[in-house]
Design a protein around this nucleic acid. Structure first.
Length: 272
DNA sequence: GCTAAATGTTGAT
DNA sequence: TCAACCTTTAGCT
C-alpha cells in the first residue's frame, strides 16, 4: 500500500538487506536491463526515502530512483531468490538476501543533479527529521484551493496519499473542501502533528490504522481491516462517531471521503 | 470464476 | 483528458 510510510519502510528494509557487499542487479523483464547492468556489482551506499520517492545510492554516483505508483511493490527475502516470474522489473541480491521490484511507475538511473531536482520539487515529508512544516503552511495559507487537494499535492506535502488525506481531515474534523487559506494555524499545527504520528505508526505497523481503540467495534487486539479507518472507502456506512452516512465525491480525479456531520458539508466550516 | 476499482504519477494526445 | 504501469482485493455471479 504505497503511501509515504510504505516507501520509508522499504528504504529501511533494503538498506539492511543489501548493505555491505556488491549487489547483483538484473532486470528479468528487460525494461531496466541497461541500467541494471551498470549497477551490477556495485555496493549500495544508502537507501533513502523522500515522500513517496525511494533513492538507492550505489557507488560511482549511481542512483536508482523508484516511485511505486499505484501497483508497484517490493518483495524480499533472506533465503535464495525464487525463480523470476511475472513482470519483474528489477532484482537486487547479495549473499544476505534479495529484493524484487514489480510494477513501479518510475524506476530510473539518475545523476546527482537529477536526484536533487526530484527532491527540490517536493514539499516537507512528515517522516523526515529535516522536514520544515512552515514551507507547507505557507503554501496552504496562500491558496484558495480545497485543503483536501493541497494535502495530496506532493509539492506542498510529500508522502501523503488518499488514505492519509481522508483520515487526517476526519481526525481534525475539517471540511475537505475548505479553502487552504481558511484552514487556520491551530488546525494546521494539529494536522501536521497528527500526520507525523500517523505516518510513523504506519511505518511501524506496515499498514495504515487511524482509528482510536474507542471508535472500533473491537477496541483492542489485532485491528480488523474494516476497523482501520474512519471514512476512507466507507461510503454510505455510518460514521463511527456520529452515525451519519459517510459521503464521497470526486476531487481532481480521486475519491474524497468525509463525514458531512463531523466535518461539515462541503466547504461549510466546522471548528477544530 | 469474473470484473471493477484501488494507496499514484507520467507521458502522450 | 486518457492510457499505461501490473497487482491485489472486494464484490458479485
Amino acid at each position: 500500500m504505497p503511501e509515504g510510510h510504505t516507501v520509508h519502510r522499504s528504504a529501511r528494509l533494503l538498506g539492511e538487506l543489501l548493505h555491505g557487499e556488491p549487489v547483483a542487479a538484473s532486470s528479468p523483464q528487460g525494461r531496466f536491463a541497461d541500467s541494471a547492468e551498470r549497477i551490477d556489482g556495485q555496493p549500495l551506499v544508502a537507501a533513502e526515502a523522500y515522500g513517496k520517492h525511494l533513492f538507492l545510492d550505489f557507488a560511482q554516483e549511481l542512483t536508482v530512483h523508484v516511485h511505486l505508483g499505484l501497483y508497484g511493490k517490493w518483495t524480499s527475502g533472506h533465503t535464495s531468490p525464487p525463480l523470476p516470474k511475472g513482470a519483474l522489473r528489477l532484482r537486487l541480491a547479495t549473499s544476505h538476501g534479495w529484493a524484487d521490484l514489480r510494477g513501479p511507475t518510475a524506476c530510473d538511473l539518475v545523476t546527482p543533479p537529477e536526484r536533487a531536482a526530484i527532491i527540490a520539487r517536493l514539499g516537507p515529508d512528515p517522516l523526515r527529521s529535516d522536514a520544515d512544516p512552515e514551507r507547507a503552511w505557507r503554501r496552504i495559507v496562500g491558496s484558495r484551493a480545497p485543503v483536501a487537494g493541497l494535502l495530496m499535492d506532493q509539492s506542498t506535502l510529500a508522502g501523503i496519499g488518499n488514505v492519509y488525506r481522508a483520515e487526517v481531515l476526519y481526525r481534525a474534523r475539517l471540511a475537505p473542501l475548505r479553502p487552504g487559506r481558511d484552514v487556520g494555524r491551530p488546525a494546521w499545527d494539529a494536522i501536521w502533528a497528527d500526520l507525523v504520528t500517523l505516518l510513523r505508526s504506519g511505518v511501524r505497523a506496515g499498514r495504515i490504522i487511524t482509528t482510536r481503540p474507542a471508535d472500533r467495534e473491537r477496541g483492542s487486539g489485532r485491528v480488523r481491516r474494516e476497523d482501520a479507518h474512519y471514512v476512507y472507502r466507507r461510503t454510505g456506512l455510518p460514521c463511527r462517531v456520529c452515525g451519519t452516512p459517510v459521503r464521497t465525491q470526486l476531487l481532481l480525479t480521486r475519491n474524497l471521503f468525509w463525514c458531512p456531520s463531523c466535518q461539515g458539508d462541503l466547504s461549510v466550516p466546522t471548528g477544530v
